[in-house]
């Protein structure tokens, strides 16, 4: 279980309309998908960045299965984030972008390569292993990012508006991938404005208002 206990963060400067102080309390079980929405500047990205370790909280605690992970570095947390864009390195082909998630030094074994090929086949991109991100559509890039998330095998998946701008067919393919991760006990935190995405994937919903997680809808 991922538990955020009074996890707080303070920005010294903010854009007009943005919140300065945040305090989050939430729980997320393995195999569960929790959707979070809220207006711009309410703190959705701040929440994801705190869980991913890109930001350090001022106070509070973040724990996973009883282990305190509040001070762990991003690479020590077992978290994979799929952002809205910029998920891939532009100069590396599809297979290397995925491979980086399996072996940071890209010394891939035959087994790694077999799994990469298999993952790409599952999302209908078997012939695109050597393409550069610039040669892919937005939906294909997101599929590559999700294949990497799938193969990274981390217990937490953070999705930051990952389906924005994709057509229905692409989104359905990606929903299937996320569902398969849930079945493998991956805890998924989904930030999305889209009702269809939320209804397709979320088990629970929370709303962020003024830096606080407010309501919970089963």
């Amino acid at each position: 279980m991922l538990i955020a206990d009074a996890l707080s963060f303070h920005y010294s400067r903010a854009e007009p309309g943005q919140t300065l102080d945040f305090c989050f309390d939430m729980q997320l079980a393995p195999g569960e998908c929790l959707a979070v929405d809220g207006p711009s500047g309410a703190g959705k990205s701040t929440l994801l960045n705190l869980i991913a370790g890109f930001l350090t909280p001022a106070t509070g605690q973040l724990s996973w299965k009883g282990e305190d992970i509040t001070r762990l570095k991003p690479w020590q947390r077992g978290v994979t984030t799929v952002f809205q864009d910029h998920n891939l390195f532009d100069h590396l082909p599809v297979w290397a972008n995925i491979g980086l998630g399996m072996a940071a030094d890209l010394r891939l074994t035959a087994e790694h390569r077999r799994r990469i090929a298999e993952g790409l086949e599952q999302v209908g991109m078997a012939e695109m292993t050597e393409r550069l991100p610039g040669e892919l559509s937005g939906g294909q890039r997101q599929r590559v990012a999700l294949v990497r998330a799938l193969l990274r095998d981390t217990p937490l998946l953070l999705l930051d508006e990952p389906f924005t701008g994709l057509d229905r067919a692409n989104r359905e393919t990606l929903w299937t991938q996320v569902e398969s991760l849930k079945r493998r006990e991956v805890a998924v935190l989904l930030v999305s404005h889209d009702v269809e995405d939320v209804e397709a994937l979320a088990d629970r919903r929370l709303r962020l208002v003024n830096g606080r997680l407010l309501s919970s809808v089963q």
Partner: peptide, 23 residues
């Protein structure tokens, strides 16, 4: 954004230089 991604994927030191910065 790339730095965050590299951090999360644990691409550091020599690997970061070899695969992400050098090209």
């Amino acid at each position: 954004a790339q730095r965050r991604l590299a951090d999360q994927l644990a691409v550091h030191g020599w690997s970061r230089l070899r695969w992400l910065i050098w090209p």
